[in-house]
Simulated scan of single mutants.
Amino acid sequence: ALLEAICAEPQRCVAELDFLGSTERQQLTHGWNPTPAASSGLCAHQLLERQARERPDALALIFDDQQMTYAELDRSSNQLA
Rank of each mutant, 00 (worst) to 15 (best):
E9K: 15
P56Y: 00
L73I: 02
E9C: 10
V14I: 15
Q67F: 08
T35M: 11
T69V: 09
F19I: 06
A60Q: 05
Q46K: 04
G21C: 06
Q46P: 05
I6C: 08
Q26H: 06
H45M: 07
P36M: 11
A52R: 05
T29H: 11
S40R: 06
D57N: 04
R75M: 07
S22K: 13
I6A: 10
S76D: 10
R50W: 00
P10C: 05
N78R: 13
Q27R: 15
D65F: 01
T69S: 15
R50V: 01
C43V: 03
M68V: 07
A5Q: 12
Q11E: 11
D57M: 01
L17T: 01
D18K: 14
L59V: 08
R50N: 02
G21T: 14
L42R: 10
S22N: 12
S40F: 00
G41H: 00
A5T: 07
S22H: 09
L48A: 00
L3S: 04
A15Q: 15
L61P: 03
R53T: 11
L28H: 08
E72R: 09
N33E: 00
S22C: 08
S76L: 14
E9D: 15
L80K: 13
A38F: 09
Q46N: 05
P36E: 11
P10Q: 05
C13G: 07
H45A: 04
L2Q: 13
A8T: 15
P36Q: 11
A81T: 10
A37S: 14
H45Q: 04
A37Y: 09
A44K: 10
